[in-house]
């Protein structure tokens, strides 16, 4: 069974961490994954960088740029992930923009994901219609879950369509915003989270964008199967010893 599905069957309050591959140093990708699993992360989203990340705020933009400047490519990333499954057992997704995937070749990309043991992908600028027509077959053939995003502005009908197209989880953005904005759970956000919760979707949901501490994490978990932390983590590992900064950061979410 796909590791993502298994995780959601077995666990509640899932903590998923996003980080940019090849950041802060080009060779850190695997070490960060190992450190995160050791410190209690349930799932990983490894970002493959793109030169024009329009959905991202300044922190992830900067990490992407540094990673690219240090020579990161999809080809190199798959080489780095070659022994992923000897070192990491939790589900791993790759997250990034569609153009590098197109240039790598969709078929090659899916194959490479399956070979290294990647369980799913999040490609925010890959439209649903294109996914359905040109990508879905290939993703499913390689047992890859494709995760779609929804925002407070996404209509119910579209959410149901997304629910039917994916088989991993649905990524709930807490607001329409670029990455790194703080989550202010006001009445409208709660109404939106409750609305989604009451839709009884087939897929589990994860709340992302703006989660940065235990309090916001717990809040998110009361409406969804878990939450995703990106910007706050990327900021935390900017410098210093990887092991220490990872375990220091993860400590904040325990207890």
């Amino acid at each position: 069974m796909n590791r993502i599905k298994q995780l959601f069957q077995e666990k509640k309050n899932i903590l998923s961490i996003y980080y940019t591959a090849g950041y802060p140093n080009i060779g850190d990708t695997i070490q960060i994954a190992e450190a995160l699993e050791k410190s209690g992360a349930d799932m990983l989203e490894i970002g493959f960088p793109y030169s024009d990340p329009v959905a991202d705020g300044p922190v992830i933009q900067a990490s992407s740029k540094k990673s690219l400047d240090q020579g990161m490519t999809l080809k190199l990333l798959f080489e780095q992930l070659k022994d992923l499954r000897k070192k990491v057992t939790i589900p791993v997704l790759l997250m990034g923009y569609v153009n590098p995937v197109l240039q790598f070749g969709v078929e090659n990309f899916c194959k490479a994901c399956a070979e290294v043991g990647v369980d799913g992908c999040i490609v925010p600028d890959l439209p649903m219609v294109e996914y359905e027509e040109f990508y879905k077959g290939c993703f499913e053939e390689h047992n890859l879950s494709n995760v779609f995003l929804i925002t407070p502005q996404t209509a119910d009908e579209r959410i149901h369509k997304i629910d039917g197209l994916t088989n991993g989880f649905i990524y709930l953005l807490s607001s329409s915003a670029t990455t790194g904005k703080n989550l202010e759970v006001g009445d409208t956000t709660e109404t939106y989270f409750s609305r989604i919760k009451n839709m009884n979707l087939t897929n589990p949901t994860m709340i992302g964008f703006g989660i940065s501490d235990k309090q916001t994490f717990d809040k998110a978990c009361s409406y969804a199967n878990g939450a995703i932390i990106g910007t706050a983590f990327v900021k935390a590992i900017e410098d210093g010893n990887i092991e220490e900064s990872v375990s220091g950061f993860m400590q904040k979410f325990k207890g």
Binding site: A55, L126, L149, T151, Q153, T154, A177
Partner: peptide, 18 residues
């Protein structure tokens, strides 16, 4: 569908969809 031959479409994150 928003295409000119092989080109066009709307490759945008969900936040821009509405």
């Amino acid at each position: 569908k928003g295409y000119y031959g092989d080109f066009g479409g709307a490759y945008i994150p969900e936040m821009l969809y509405p």
